Simulated assay, not measured.
Amino acid sequence: MCSYCGCRSIGVIGRFSTEHDELINVTGLLRRAVGADRRDEVVALVDDVARLLRPHTDAEEVGLFAVLRRDEDFTGHIDTLCGEHVGLDDLLARIRAGESHLVDRFDAELRSHIQREENGLFPASLTTLGGAEWDEVDELTAAAVPVSPLRSA
Rank of each mutant, 00 (worst) to 15 (best):
L68S: 09
L23A: 03
S152M: 09
R94K: 14
P146H: 08
E72G: 03
L110I: 04
I114V: 15
Y4K: 11
D58F: 01
H20Q: 11
V147Q: 12
E136D: 12
F65V: 07
C5K: 08
C5E: 03
D138H: 09
G14K: 13
T128H: 05
V49Y: 11
V62N: 06
L88R: 01
S148G: 00
N119I: 00
V147I: 10
R111P: 03
S17F: 03
G131T: 13
F122H: 07
L140I: 11
G131N: 13
L102E: 08
G35W: 01
L30V: 05
V49W: 09
Q115P: 00
V12K: 10
D47S: 15
R32A: 11
L53S: 07
L45S: 04
H56Q: 10
R39T: 13
S112N: 07
D73E: 15
T27N: 07
E99L: 02
R8E: 12
A132H: 11
V145E: 09
D71F: 14
D104M: 11
L92E: 06
A66M: 09
R15V: 13
T75W: 07
S152W: 07
R51M: 06
H101V: 10
L64C: 01
L102R: 12
D107F: 12
A124I: 01
T75P: 02
G14T: 05
R116A: 12
T127Y: 13
V137H: 05
V67N: 04
S148W: 12
L45V: 04
G120P: 04
R94F: 01
R96N: 07
F106E: 10
I10M: 14
D21R: 04
A108E: 14
L52F: 14
P123Y: 03
I24D: 04
R111D: 05
V43I: 15
L121K: 03
G11A: 13
T128K: 04
G120Y: 09
N119D: 02
L102V: 09
R15W: 07
A144F: 10
G35P: 00
D21H: 10
A33D: 10
R8S: 12
R51I: 00
R8M: 06
T57K: 00
G83C: 08
E136L: 14
A36G: 00
E117F: 09
V86F: 01
A44L: 10
L29D: 08
W134Q: 10
I114S: 07
G14W: 06
E22Q: 09
E22Y: 03
L140W: 06
T80M: 13
H101A: 15
V147P: 01
D40C: 01
E60D: 07
T80N: 07
D138W: 01
H101Y: 06
E139F: 09
R69L: 03
A44H: 08
R31Y: 00
Y4H: 14
G28D: 05
V145K: 11
A66S: 15
Q115F: 13
S112L: 11
G98C: 13
P146I: 12
S152I: 07
D48Q: 15
V42G: 02
T75F: 06
R31C: 04
I10S: 01
W134N: 12
G63Q: 09
T27V: 14
L88D: 02
R116L: 12
V34N: 05
A124Y: 02
L68Y: 08
V46K: 00
L23G: 03
A50S: 14
P123F: 02
H113I: 05
P55H: 11
R39A: 14
D58G: 00
A124M: 14
G76M: 04
D107W: 10
D89C: 07
G28L: 04
G87K: 02
